[in-house]
Design a protein around this nucleic acid. Structure first.
Lengths: 140, 140
DNA sequence: TCAAATCAGACAAAAAAAGTCTGATTTCTA
DNA sequence: TAGAAATCAGACTTTTTTTGTCTGATTTGA
């Protein structure tokens, strides 16, 4: 139930973009954050496809946040970059579920857990994670 | 951030034991739950080491719960069988943490998430997952 | 004494995650 | 308008983790 490096890198990169007002190139982000450049590229592309960041091509281009940091949650990023909670085999379609004893009970546990994770991570925005004065609501 | 089959199998097995009053052999559990026998053996051994189940050796032996189902939580099982939430590299001991920008903020997010997961899963006991009449507090 | 069970740990196979490489396309600037 | 700097796209490889298997030892009840 661990969090992948992919999601960790992605979150770090988005936080980095949140600190800037100009587009930043993959290379510059990779260097300041010490992340593998080629891998970071794929991560940013994935985040672009879901509208979290936007890219400007060509010389002097780069990535920037597609919307204000306050409107991007940690959940938005993790649900895109991390594998979904449910990974085990679900009952075959068309058959009655829960024939295997315990299957549906565990499913229900995962469902509850998933909801809770979504709720928790949705309540934290990228803006909350940016450096600022200590009187802020969420100060990390 | 998915849950491993190991944890899924383990939870299913413990629920199965919760339904019984007599020790059950690995083989019988594997058969009724349709789980791989050799793998299940290792899982039950791990749960035995942390005192969730107990084993009786020899002919007519088998596994049973080491304490009442009400006193075993889903968290007890998952924290043993699943990988821990934090898997990325932490700052090198002896150096100042948070030199890499964004590192400590993400760490804080994981910490909050971990607490929430623990809280959620600790609130569900194996007894809650056993089949019983619908007026029970937790009825799955 | 034998059969049925757990115990222990090495090993193998499969799947997933992490990372790399190559070449195409776009766009700014000199 | 050519070249440099950037993203885009996707195949590929390597590494790590997970899942599963095998073999042999030990314990215990009938």
């Amino acid at each position: 139930m661990k969090i992948s490096k992919k999601a960790y890198y992605g979150l770090r990169a988005v936080i980095a973009l949140g600190r800037l007002s100009e587009p930043a190139s993959i290379r510059s982000i990779a260097e300041t954050e010490h992340l593998p450049e080629d891998y970071l590229e794929k991560i940013l592309q994935a985040l672009r496809r879901v509208g979290i960041v936007e890219a400007k091509k060509g010389a002097d281009g780069g990535y920037s946040l597609a919307r204000p940091a306050r409107e991007i949650s940690v959940w938005d990023i993790l649900k895109e970059l991390d594998s979904p909670l449910r990974s085990f085999s679900t009952p075959i379609k068309g058959t009655l579920p829960c024939l295997q004893p315990g299957h549906c009970q565990t499913n229900e546990v995962w469902r509850i857990l998933e909801k809770e994770i979504e709720k928790t991570l949705s309540s934290i925005s990228i803006d909350d994670l940016l450096p600022k004065d200590a009187r802020q609501k969420h100060a990390f």
